[in-house]
């Protein structure tokens, strides 16, 4: 049973790869979208309104 699992372990890499890849893609897509939208909108507002500057 245990040996069986370990023998099959090789093809688990597919799931691992897809999982890590999906997490990477989702996070980076959301980050890029947030940052870009922030830049676009911040151009429309005078700097003195952005208190974190």
């Amino acid at each position: 049973m245990l040996a069986d699992t370990l023998n099959q372990a090789g093809h688990y890499w597919t799931y691992v790869g897809v999982g890590y890849g999906a997490a990477f893609v989702v996070l980076s897509a959301y980050s890029v979208r947030t940052v870009r939208r922030g830049r676009k909108l911040s151009r429309r507002l005078p700097p003195d309104q952005r208190r974190w500057m």
Partner: peptide
């Protein structure tokens, strides 16, 4: 027990 899947 879980092989590489545990990496997830």
């Amino acid at each position: 027990n879980q092989g590489n899947a545990a990496r997830l």
